[in-house]
């Protein structure tokens, strides 16, 4: 009896030992697999962001348009200088800061998306603007296509692969676009001139299907009203047609991206201002020194200009001054 008990204890001890040791080894393997998988997912998540960032970099060397194929569906996010992949609540959410000025919808979930790059000059080159759009986001222009040459030219410069639709103001009937809105995740109506249907009317037509945004552009005043998906109105001004394209492609996300663009404009103005100062110190011809000095003063004001009127006024003046410097065979601002 005692011997049997001893044998049981010995067997029990072996079992307990085996179970504990097995559990430790199992825990180790689970932890190892977890570390391995999260490591792989970290690399993959960052790699897709880096690929998108590099592709945009390479594409932005020159102006142009193309359709990007990501070779898979990724949940890409674009938020004011930050690229992201994945959904914010999940473990596979990654972010990467980018220096590029990207005007686009907040999310792109498609394998294919259209890209258009355009240089922003004010009047010297400031940056390359990127406009991105997937086919689930619909932009509809409503404007005076029969009477305004400005509107026709503005629309005509947009590459066809960006998939913009345009309709004349007099022929615009919201009911005609319900089926288009139904198939879209974001529907943006851009009015050029006075809107024929207000935000609430359009919301009642399209609001049930996806995000509706309305932009009302005044081409003469360089201003616009932006109504977000909740009907909140924001008054904005744009500096140059390139920025207006940005407003159209980014909608309610415009202000933040515009701020990045304006910071860059300020930086480039500082560079040109200092360049003019340095060139002046090397110049002997009085005519050139005078013209450069005037240009320097203009750039000083341009650097601190905040209002739309000041900016457009100085844009023209700096452009004219540069032309004058060129005519006099002097070193130019840009």
């Amino acid at each position: 009896m005692i011997k049997s008990k001893k044998g049981n204890t010995h067997l029990l001890f072996k079992w307990i030992f085996g179970v504990i040791a097995g559990a430790i080894i199992l825990a180790f393997f689970i932890k190892f697999s977890y570390v391995h998988l999260s490591g792989e997912s970290l690399i993959e998540g960052n790699r897709i962001l880096l690929t998108v960032d590099n592709k945009l970099d390479a594409f932005g060397v020159k102006e142009g348009t193309d359709v990007f194929d990501l070779k898979g569906e990724f949940n890409l996010g674009f938020d004011c200088g930050v690229l992201s992949s994945g959904t914010p609540e999940s473990n596979n959410f990654f972010e990467r800061k980018t220096d590029k000025i990207i005007f686009t919808q907040p999310k792109i979930n498609e394998r294919y998306f259209s890209v258009w790059t355009k240089k922003w000059e004010a009047p010297y080159g400031v940056s390359t603007f990127y406009y991105l759009k997937d086919k689930n986001s619909v932009i509809l222009f409503v404007g005076p296509s029969s009477s305004s040459e400005d509107f026709v030219n503005f629309v005509g410069r947009i590459p066809s692969n960006m998939g913009i639709q345009a309709v004349d103001t007099t022929q615009f009937n919201p009911g005609d676009f319900v089926s288009t809105a139904r198939q879209s995740s974001k529907f943006t109506v851009v009015y050029f001139g006075n809107p024929t249907y207000d935000w609430s009317t359009l919301k009642s037509q399209y609001g049930n299907f996806g995000d509706l945004e309305v932009v009302v552009v005044n081409l003469n005043e360089h201003i616009a009203e932006v109504y977000d998906t909740y009907g909140n109105k924001e008054d904005v001004f744009y500096f140059g047609d390139e920025m207006l394209y940005g407003l159209i492609f980014s909608g309610s996300k415009f202000s933040c991206t515009k701020e990045i663009a304006m910071n860059r404009f300020n930086l480039l103005t500082r560079i040109h201002l200092e360049k003019v100062g340095r060139i002046m110190s090397k110049e002997n011809r009085p005519v050139c020194v005078d013209l450069l000095n005037e240009a320097r003063k203009m750039l000083e004001n341009y650097q601190f200009a905040l209002t739309k009127t000041e900016l457009y006024d100085l844009l023209e003046k700096v452009g004219r001054q540069n032309l004058q410097l060129e005519r006099e065979d002097c070193p130019t601002v840009y």
Partner: peptide, 29 residues
């Protein structure tokens, strides 16, 4: 390499060259 040649902080405007007068202002910025 391709991007730096076209970077507005360093390049000439639209002519594909690099503007040496921008180097010192750029370094300051």
């Amino acid at each position: 390499l391709a991007k730096a040649v076209g970077l507005q902080e360093l390049s000439c405007d639209g002519t594909g060259c690099i503007d040496t007068a921008k180097f010192l202002p750029f370094k300051r910025v």
